[in-house]
Simulated scan of single mutants.
Amino acid sequence: MTRTILFLLLPLFLFSKDIVEVYRLHGMNGLEKMLDLELSSPAYWQKALQNHDIRYGFFDTPTDLLLCTKSKRELALYTINGHLQLKQKTPIIIGQAAGDKIREGDMRTPIGVYHIVARKTNLEKKYGPLAFVTDYPNRFDRIWGKNGHGIWLHGLPPGKEGEKNATKGCIAVDNQTLLHLDRQLSLDRALLVISETPLQEVSEETMRHLLAFIYHWRYTWKYNLFNEYLENYSPRLVFQSVHDFNYFSKYKERVFEKNRNRKKTLRFSDLKVVPYPNSLGKKLWYVSFHEYYKSGGYIFSGTKKILVEEKRPNHFKIIVE
């Protein structure tokens, strides 16, 4: 499989003397390392992003993106498949209290990035014909001490759709709009981004540097460059719910030492990178991907989600893993 991918990528380099020389001297492993390094270059991503509409993020695979803007009381559905297409825009009703949701019963609609984890029908009439269940509080919410549950995107009581002007924290739309949304939305590829103000569009410069950072992190991980690997993380890192960078550093040092002489396989696919709205005053990025990792007899295959902070323009650190 790796050989096939490398063969398909070779035309990108036009069989330059450099790539042929790397292959002559170091074989396919050397060639693979060279290509992995290329992925960590902003120059590579400048070319790769030419056919991507990255105004609201980067998506490897088709995605249904729901943008909820609380200040405008508006929900927009975009389909993304390289290009961004607006499918629907509708007024909404949100929690009766202003601000980000912090605790159970505060009547606020949360701010952040959420997955839709279920579709419910046969509900009480006050919820309309159906409801989409979000994963609030997600892992990041819980790290920040937020609690509560049951944040849904739902409908309204039949015959009273014009009477309600607030919820207890959910997002509500009129029933016909909800049914139309239901026909267009694929739950397994949907992402809900809730922000207080309209989401700022992402610049090409920022996205290419962020993607280069993600693949530099991968490169240092795959090739056992321990000190460079640690530099990708914030000293305030939260790792497996532990707020202790020294614990993380020592744990990873043991793992790297154990795998020092082992060849690693590390692949990222289904990469999603979107701004993460928050009430902390930070510029954050939500990054999720399917990870395939193999080293020795250990294999991991599953979804990974991290949070990246941009402390200053085009300089990033992982703050949650």
Rank of each mutant, 00 (worst) to 15 (best):
L75P: 07
S301D: 13
Y215F: 15
E257R: 11
K252M: 04
H149V: 08
T2W: 09
L153H: 05
T197M: 15
Y44H: 07
T265D: 10
I102P: 04
H290K: 13
N278Y: 02
Y247L: 10
E231H: 10
R183I: 01
K250S: 15
S269L: 02
E228V: 04
C68V: 13
T167K: 03
D244C: 04
Y276V: 01
L10C: 11
D244Y: 08
E309M: 13
D135L: 00
F316G: 02
V273H: 05
E196M: 03
Y23R: 11
L230N: 03
T206Y: 04
Q176Y: 08
I80T: 07
Y215L: 11
R142I: 07
L35I: 15
T121S: 03
E257Y: 11
Q176V: 05
E38V: 12
N81G: 10
L39D: 06
N175S: 03
R119I: 03
L37M: 13
M107E: 09
T90I: 15
M207W: 02
L77C: 03
K305S: 02
N147A: 01
E32Q: 15
Q46T: 08
A43M: 11
P277W: 00
F268Y: 14
T265K: 12
K311V: 12
A98Q: 15
A76K: 12
L130D: 01
A97R: 06
Q96M: 10
N122I: 04
L199D: 00
L284S: 02
L271Y: 01
S295M: 06
I111V: 13
L130C: 05
D100A: 11
R24V: 10
F268W: 14
K160N: 09
V274F: 07
E124V: 11
Y292T: 07
L156I: 00
G148T: 07
V274I: 08
E32Y: 08
L266C: 12
G162V: 06
K272D: 04
D53F: 05
E124T: 13
P62M: 08
R208P: 05
H154D: 00
L230R: 03
I299M: 13
S288K: 14
I319D: 00
H154Y: 05
L191C: 08
Y247A: 12
L9Y: 10
Y219K: 06
R142T: 07
Q46N: 13
N246Y: 14
S295W: 04
F213E: 01
T197Y: 15
D188H: 09
A48P: 08
